[in-house]
Amino acid sequence: MNFFNAESYIYVKFFISLFTIINPIGLIPVFIYLTNSQTSSERNSTNIRANFTALIILLFSLFYGYRILNFFNISIDSFRIAGGILVAMFAFSMMNGTLLQNRVQIKSKNVSSNINNQSTSYKKEDISIIPLAMPFIAGPGAISSVILWRMQYSNLYNLIGFSVVILFFSFFCCLTFKIAPYITSIVDDIYIRIINRIMGLLLLSVAIEFIFNSIKTIIFSYI
């Protein structure tokens, strides 16, 4: 019990990292847009499937992502720098307000393509798993971040703690999408954009920390 009290800040930082990268608040307009034609029960089902799938993806990345890196002989510090750069790119997109716009544009193209091909029905699973679960929720940034945290804190207690945080975050994300229609009815779009930019700034700080620590480790290894 004392261990978790002493290390609780790690899990708080991990949760904040997931929150800033995935940004469920910023995904509310996307979720509403994708499920606009669904009934309330269908929207709830889509919400549960999407977050459960994202949960499985993130847990798999937590336990097996580093093994994939070892298979390709990729060092921890190299992956931290690459992951930090990737996360930083997400952060810049969030601060510029282009990430959400690109997400909606990509989905609009897919919807237009399906409308032109009316002989093929658009399956609900395609919405919940692709693109909601991946890449919107468990995207490259989130997967990279999970692997980075796992490699930095790799003992059994941390793995259990990270798993609990991912589970809690999935529940939080599911609850956020559940109340999304109510949020959009009382919160103006401009406030969501402001939140996106603030989250982008926090995310950029996390990315810089990953890159700086990795470069520092490489430099000191040659001294």
Rank of each mutant, 00 (worst) to 15 (best):
I74E: 13
G84F: 01
V104R: 05
I85S: 05
V12D: 07
S61Y: 04
S205F: 09
M151D: 05
L202I: 08
F31D: 00
T46Q: 09
K123R: 07
R43C: 10
S154R: 05
Y157G: 02
L204S: 12
M95V: 08
S17I: 06
F3T: 03
F31V: 03
I143V: 15
N158C: 06
T98Y: 15
N23P: 02
L100K: 10
Q38S: 10
I76Q: 00
N158H: 14
Y11M: 08
N110F: 13
L132T: 04
S45G: 13
A50S: 10
I28L: 06
P131I: 01
I223V: 14
V87T: 06
I57D: 15
L201C: 06
I215H: 02
N2T: 07
F220T: 15
I208Y: 07
R80Y: 09
Y33F: 15
M95A: 04
F92K: 14
F63R: 07
I106C: 03
S45Y: 04
S93H: 15
F52T: 13
Y64E: 02
I129F: 11
D77F: 01
N23R: 04
S145R: 00
L204E: 07
K13Q: 08
A50Y: 02
F212Y: 12
N213M: 06
I21G: 06
V206Y: 10
S8H: 03
S45M: 04
A54M: 01
A142Q: 08
M151G: 10
V104T: 08
N110T: 14
V111H: 05
P135F: 03
S205D: 01
Q118S: 04
S145A: 07
N73A: 10
N116H: 09
M1E: 00
G141S: 12
I219M: 01
T176F: 00
N110W: 15
L59C: 06
L156D: 06
N2Q: 05
L159D: 13
I215S: 03
N47F: 01
A180E: 00
